[in-house]
Structure formats: structure tokens, C-alpha cells
Nucleic acid binder design. Sequence first.
DNA 1: TTGAAAGCGCTAACAC
DNA 2: GTGTTAGCGCTTTCAA
Lengths: 342, 342
Amino acid sequence: MTRPRQRLLTLRDVSEASGVSEMTVSRVLRGKGDVSEATRLKVQEAARSLGYVPNKIAGSLASQRVNLVAVVIPSLGNMVFPEVLSGISATLDGTGLQPVVGVTDYSPEKEEKVLFEMLSWRPSGVIIAGLEHTEASVAMMKRAGIPVVEVLDVDGEPVDAMVGISQRRAGQQMGEAIAAAGYRRIGFVGTGMEHDLRARKRLEGFESALAAHGIEIAVRVRYEGSSALQKGREETANLLDQVPGLDFIYYANDMVGAGGLLELLARGRNIPADIGLAGFNNIELLDGLPLRLATMDACRREAGQKAAEIIAARHNDPKMEGGQRITLTPILQKGQTLRSAP
Amino acid sequence: MTRPRQRLLTLRDVSEASGVSEMTVSRVLRGKGDVSEATRLKVQEAARSLGYVPNKIAGSLASQRVNLVAVVIPSLGNMVFPEVLSGISATLDGTGLQPVVGVTDYSPEKEEKVLFEMLSWRPSGVIIAGLEHTEASVAMMKRAGIPVVEVLDVDGEPVDAMVGISQRRAGQQMGEAIAAAGYRRIGFVGTGMEHDLRARKRLEGFESALAAHGIEIAVRVRYEGSSALQKGREETANLLDQVPGLDFIYYANDMVGAGGLLELLARGRNIPADIGLAGFNNIELLDGLPLRLATMDACRREAGQKAAEIIAARHNDPKMEGGQRITLTPILQKGQTLRSAP
DNA sequence: TTGAAAGCGCTAACAC
DNA sequence: GTGTTAGCGCTTTCAA
């Protein structure tokens, strides 16, 4: 494959350039241990002028510690995971820990591979989306001997710690609000993501809430691929044509929901009196739409923050107990597309 | 800070469990060298049943090779960089190389830190957004002895290789199209990103093209913060109030442009006859809007792909020459918000 | 086809 | 405050 690249600068080079022992150079560069001001300056100057970049591979091997946190998420393409990530980064900043991201494309097999790959770097912790993983993935995480935090869902048993909302409950709440508002003929637009188990749980909760009111989803479609805004329009048109009497559409996420909103507005439909709609995620995009879409916050940023806090705390105090369970509470935003209960 | 974590499984454990020497176990696990089928099976079985995860830190130190590619980008929050990333991942898949992402928040100082941090892991290559970096960053990249590809801009001198569009030329082209269409009183909505040098270059090109037609930008505003759709609406309203005779608005990106479009439609303006508008990036979102916004593709995915190809090729053949320069050509999409030349 | 020895570049632990 | 020694867990090299 590849041949070793040219030799780079080592501690020894800095040591020779500064006339200070390797060990002391190492101390200066890490800011550990007492070093006299004089030698410190000598060393720093030498390192700077040589352009020395320490070798973390060697350092980590020797110290048996790695300042990386593995973050395993399904996708970077839909705004929700970047937000989790941004919560993680913000919290990790200043702890000396660094997130490293792996993407699974919603595939459990790829997740397993990514996890294996990341664990082979011996990170200080794992933050992973969801509670469902292959047996091998679970085994790996358990054996890794590091804090593991599963995020964005709390409906199930975690490997170790978990932080998130109850997706099932979130779906239920939306279903209840819709039924309470008197909507009766309800359509659903879902993603084609077979493996988005959180979306599935939301839908289950949603259906159970409707069932309690004697309502069944009248029609459902799934879209494949991305371009969610456009798909939202198309599938909405689709639904309306299939079932003219529809008075509500529930969308698997805000992006398709926004597309649906644009379509309904284009058709001059009376929202929310005549027909209502709701999405999920509370993405920022909604602020600029002609009407505020009803939605629910998945608390993604907060989940990332809390997860990172757990990792950081346990990194600093390895004796700390694991198994934290933090349930976040999403707020239902009625926006302007869900009428109030009569 | 932290104490070493519990001892994990090592090659020695697999060696003992299988009764095969460490060296041969290593060969099996890496699939290198000739190993008899019998021992191969013994070893694989032992590794699997123990749940052995190799230690890449030790492996990389010993072999002096690391299968990581450092990817340094300003942000994950706006869809353009994730797309570059996805081009990179797709191309790297199957090469044995893995991208590791660092985010700079458009700050040159943070970029320097991120670069230092990543280079200390001795990656096999660097892909970094833009051509402008601190002196120290440039020095680090030059000294690293690995392929470096700067992406998304070709207006300047690269450290090594570069792949992207000419941002200046892109701005010019849009300016020319607008002037040719006969628009004369032109407004500009930019981001508050002081350090988005690519946006700045686009604007320079844009202004120079207008100047060639004796036109100056009549009014410009910058928005701060995110929520680009909403800001697009607000700033558009703002502009129209300040300069009622405006007949074109150029937006720094499609997201604000989409907000502007919604605002103009809400005001019942006649697009593109009465007033035109254009964005930049050709994001997917545009497909679902009531009118297709005029825009220009930044070739982000393609830039990621080409960059990754360069890294992969040079990884496989270190003797290969560096300094590749690939200029991609963005296509101007007139959409429905830019009238044709009279 | 397999094994033994010698490091990779750094840091922990201990001596001075 | 500074230096010395002995590895960290692998892979390279070379011998068997």
C-alpha cells in the first residue's frame, strides 16, 4: 500500500536543539511537572522555531490515554445530527477531549464497522445515536471499558448511559393534540428510512394516541431520497388526490412538513381551520415560513450537551458510576398549522 | 486528569487463546503474508470469540502509517460542507482511508489549532477549505510531508494541490448575467461572516462585473447569526424599505435567497419582470420553492471527490507529483427569478 | 509458513 | 528541577 513517509521531527530533535533532555522537553510541551522558567522558554523557542508537531500516536500509546470521544450518528445530511454534534463540541471544548465523528447511513452493519474502527483508536468515550444496535456492537461497547452514552431516545435499555426524549411519547403527544383539536381524517408522510427506528417509534406512539380516540391513519405514503422540501410538496399533492377529505397531515420531519405547507398554501387551502399539519424536530427553517408549522423539539443540542457532560465527568473521575438515564422533555409547538381544541 | 483504563485484550491474548505466535496472529488479522488456512481459522475464531479489537495506536506507531485523512472545514451547519464531506467519504470508501473532520468556525486561529491537533495524529493527507491560512498553518502543512488539497477556491496559490471553482469568476458571471438582463438598481444581502473569504471573493467578482456596465451596488446589508431563511425575509424587507426602486437582490447564499423569495412573493412582487433575485450554492432546498431561485453551483460534492482522489492516488504512490490544480466550472442556473437578456 | 528480536516516539515511574 | 530507564502494543526485518 504505502511506504512510510519521510522522517518528521521528534522530541529528540527539540531536545538536541535546546540542549534539554527529552523528558524535560516532554514536560514543557505538555505543561506538566515543575520546569524552571528558563528551560521552559528555551524549549518552547526551540519547538516553535523547528515547527515541531508532537506525535500523539506515540504519546497515546505511552500514556494509555486518548483524548478522543467517538460520536456515531446516522447522517450528516439533515441538520439534526449536526446539531447534536454542535452540543457535544461546545461542551467538550475546554475539557481536552475531542469528538471524532463516524457516520452509519442508518445501517446497523455499517454502524458495527464504524464502531469497530473507532474503538480501535481507544477513545475515552462513545456517544451513539439510538438504543438499537447489533449484538456485536453492543458487545464491543460493553467490553470497551469506557463510558458509552446513547442519545436521542430513551425507549429501551441502554448499554450504559442514555440521554434523550421518549420518541414514542413524542408521537403520542402530537397524536393527542391532533385528536383533541378535532381533526379526524389523518394522513402521514414518512421517510423511506427503514432503519430510522426513532421515526418508527414516533409513528407507533402517534398511532396509539389516535387509536385511543378511535381514529386510524387514513392514508400513508413514504418518500425515498432526499430533497425533502420538494418531496413534501409532491407527497402532499399525492395524498390530497388520494383522499380528498383529509383534514390533517403528519410529517415525519419538518423539512417535508415545510414542503407540505408550501403545497397547501399554493392550493389556497385554509390552514389550520380546514386542514392542519405538523412536522417534527423544530428546525430553524420554520422561522422563515409563511406560517409557523406545528412541531416538536427533539432536544438534539441539549442531548449532545448532556451526553458530553457525562463523558467528560466520567473521564475526569473514572470511579464515577455509569448508567445515567436522562429524559428530556420536548415541548409541542402548535405554531399556526394546528388549531386549538374546540 | 485521567488514570489509565483497565487493560484491554491484546494480540498476546489472542495468541495464547489460539496457540499461535503473536506475529502470525498479527498477519492473520491484517490479511498480510502467507498463513496456512488452518492457523488462519484458529486465529480468526479466537479473535472473534474473545471480541478482540486491535489497537490502532500501537499499530500505527509501529508501522508508521495512519489511514486517516484530515478534513478541515469552517462549519457543519450550512449544508455546503457536509456535501463536500460526502463527496470525500464516498471516494475514500474502499481505499482504506478514513476522513476525520475538524471544524474551524471560520476562524483562522481555530483553524491553526485544529490543524495542529490533527497533524499530531500523523494523517495520510489533508483536505482543507480555502486558500487563505495563517503563516503557521501553511508552514505546518508544508512540513507535514503529506498531500494537502485546498478545496472550494482556486483564486490564489495553494500549499500543494487545489480543487474548486473560481469564486471571483462565479461572482462575475452572476453580475454579468444580471447586468445583461437589464437590472440596474441592485441590492446585496451578505452574511456577517468576516472570515468567509470565498463569499468576499464572489462579491468582488460581482462588483467588478457590474462596474464594467457602469453599475454600482445600490444598497447592501449583512445579517448576523443563523436562521438564514428568516434573516432573508427580514433583510429583504429592510432593503425594499430603504431603496424602493430596487430591481434586483443578490444574496450571499441560497438559504437567505429563499427567504428573500418568500418575502417578495408575500408582497406580491412580480418576479422576475419587476424584480429579480439570485443566490449561490444550488442547494437542494430550491427544488421545493414556489419559484426556482437563480443560483450557481459551487461544485461542492465534486470538489470533495476530486480532492479525495488526489489524496488516495498519492497515498498509493508517494512518488507521484503533487501540486495538482483542478478548476471546476459552475453552471449558472437562471431558474425563474432572473429574466432573460432583452 | 512461522517465529524472535528490535524498535516506532513518547511518557510513567523513579532516581538524583 | 531534571535525567534515566523501561516499557505502551504493535509491526518490521530477518532468521529458521
